[in-house]
């Protein structure tokens, strides 16, 4: 049985798994980038009230393996509160939290590290703060941040594989189940690898392209 044969025979299962993986990724990306950006901007502006607690939480979270965090929210927390939550929701919530924190860190660092001299140059040219923000600060920060942000989102998509460990029927779990019935690990996991390469490489390549195109040596300006 070749990779193609397996894909054709089990295409329903693979497509369902793929749909779950993509749903999970979309939730993580949309909420992670949206809320993470808002939190990062707020943290850069209100350093004490928002920035410090966010950094402390990020520091705390960085010490916990993702799998432990996911299992902790899936079993002990639900047992403590005597609730049963759909594993998909638990996985989406856990990974979104991680993405929010990571994006917020990235955004806050980019805002904090923004060379204030560019704002000074705009001021001495008579530009108002609105124009300075939209035409100077935002484009420079966006260009500085975009490659790292894209690569982070690819990593987050890869972390959706952990959801299989709490019984979410995403693509990795589907692949495991098919392998359990036909035992063709080389073909099945090769197909899975090809799928992730097909999704990840264009995004990573785009990130590298953006990095090469946009990243400037700010000291030269």
């Amino acid at each position: 049985m070749t990779v193609l044969d397996i894909l054709i025979k089990y295409h329903d299962g693979f497509l369902q798994g793929l749909a779950v993986t993509l749903q999970l990724s979309l939730i993580i990306w949309i909420f992670g980038m949206g809320l993470g950006t808002a939190l990062g901007m707020a943290g850069a502006k209100y350093k004490l009230e928002i920035g410090l607690p966010t950094r402390l939480f990020s520091f705390f979270l960085s010490g916990i393996p993702l799998l432990v965090f996911l299992f902790w929210l899936h079993y002990p927390v639900q047992a403590m509160f005597n609730v049963v939550i759909d594993p998909f929701i638990t996985a989406a919530f856990t990974l979104t939290i991680v993405n929010i924190v990571a994006v917020a860190d990235l955004v806050r660092t980019t805002v904090d590290d923004f060379p204030k001299q560019y704002i000074l140059a705009a001021r001495v040219c008579g530009m108002d703060s609105h124009k300075t923000f939209w035409r100077i600060q935002l484009p420079i920060m966006f260009r500085q941040m975009l490659p790292a942000l894209l690569m982070l989102q690819v990593t987050m998509m890869h972390t959706t594989l952990f959801a299989s460990l709490i019984s979410v029927e995403e693509i990795f779990r589907v692949a495991q189940r098919i392998n359990a019935s036909i035992y063709k690990p080389v073909e099945i996991y090769t197909a899975l690898g090809v799928f992730f390469l097909a999704v990840s490489l264009p995004i990573n390549g785009f990130a590298l392209l953006m990095k090469a195109k946009f990243t400037r040596n700010l000291s030269e300006s």
Partner: peptide, 27 residues
């Protein structure tokens, strides 16, 4: 007071995402 009084600094702080022409015209 700006740009009636304006300044050029030792490190020029040209905006790196804009061409020199755009740097000159943006303000």
């Amino acid at each position: 007071p700006w740009p009636r009084v304006t300044a050029v600094f030792q490190q020029l702080f040209l905006w790196p995402h804009l061409t020199l022409r755009e740097n000159c015209l943006l303000p």
